[in-house]
Design a protein around this nucleic acid. Structure first.
Lengths: 198, 198
DNA sequence: AAAGTTAGAATGAACGTTCGAAATAATGTT
DNA sequence: AACATTATTTCGAACGTTCATTCTAACTTT
């Protein structure tokens, strides 16, 4: 009955199964969307029966919640890397990482997953809440970085624009799948530098 | 084959009903998403029976297709306004209109509708195709504007960043519904100016 | 053999869609 | 004008399908 103990006591086998389901579901959602994917298809891809998935997750909704959890915590971990960076040359380092971020966010799989999560948040208040809580964390941490280490004023406004830019990439990839990444990156850097200027 | 004639031949009553359905469906989709909305709810909001909707639309998918059509053509009309603008002071005019665009795209109803359309495109190839065709039009027209009237090189790359910014606003509103619009707009202008600089 | 694990058919609800008839409007006839 | 007839609009119940979820029995492992 004790859920917390159950989680802690998960055997390696169980943990592997959970990851197996999560990976399969993620792939399905990316390809056909949350509502276009049936439990049967997830089961097929995870190489187990549909009914069996319910031994690891209470519902289909719980699966996407777990996927969102996985994504957001990975994202928060990436954010923490920034905080341990030295102050000098921080701006250049940030621009460099931003370009890496462009590459990541324009990756078809990643951008599709982001969009799927956002789409689900529009329908599922629980997902929306998770996304907002996560956003507060990365937003305020990043703003403090700009404010304390780069000595920039109005850090919140700057962060908002930077995040808008990166969020926009997922939609951009959907509307223009074969866009010129190099050309895009060049002017994104220009935009980022402008937003980070005094 | 002539769609325009078909529309023209519709009786005022029919046109009113179609708009009634489209408006009701749009409101429902914005609030609960396409898949969270049943035909029954659309019917209730449009004040007619569910079955009757099928006299005006072949399917639920046809409704969202019509909504997308309405949105994209309104968007293309707005784009055409730019072309009739005088060359001198065009850049300032564009920045001014961009700020108006920020206001529009951060409107809760509008941003939710944009997201819903994008989300549906992820699942429905027909919608995705419509969105891409529309994107080609506004993208190339806008690029020509930058290239011919503002004499800017790499117009496509610049346009891509500008569009990324505006597309991102819809997601941003979902993640951070009560963001500070003024602070955002200030740095968006800064970013736009950087993208439009030689 | 007991406990844990798996499969796949059964269940039941939700929902898009269809259908036949009733109500209403339009047209024609005397 | 009054009536008859044809066409259009509207409704709401019924249908069929899809799909998440449950259940029971079989199978592994210890």
């Amino acid at each position: 009955m004790n859920m917390t103990n159950q989680i802690d006591k998960r055997s390696p086998r169980t943990k592997a199964r959970v990851i197996q389901i999560l990976d399969a579901a993620t792939a399905c959602f990316v390809e056909q969307g949350f509502h276009g994917t049936g439990m049967a298809r997830i089961a097929e891809r995870a190489e187990m029966s549909a009914g069996h998935i319910y031994h690891y997750f209470d519902s289909k909704d719980a699966i996407i919640a777990a996927i969102v959890e996985r994504e957001t915590s990975a994202h928060e971990a990436k954010m923490r890397e920034f905080q341990s960076l030295p102050c000098e040359n921080l701006k250049n380092e940030m621009v460099a990482r931003a370009e890496e971020g462009v590459r990541t966010n324009t990756d078809p799989f990643r951008s599709a997953l982001s969009l799927e999560i956002v789409a689900e948040a529009k329908r599922n208040p629980d997902i929306a809440e998770r996304l907002r809580r996560h956003d507060v964390i990365v937003r305020t941490e990043f703003a403090r970085l700009l404010s304390e280490k780069l000595k920039l004023d109005h850090a919140e406004g700057r962060v908002e624009v930077l995040f808008t830019l990166f969020d926009g990439l997922a939609i951009r990839m959907l509307r223009h799948p074969d866009l010129d990444q190099a050309g895009l990156t060049r002017f994104i850097r220009q935009a980022i530098l402008a937003v980070l200027a005094d």
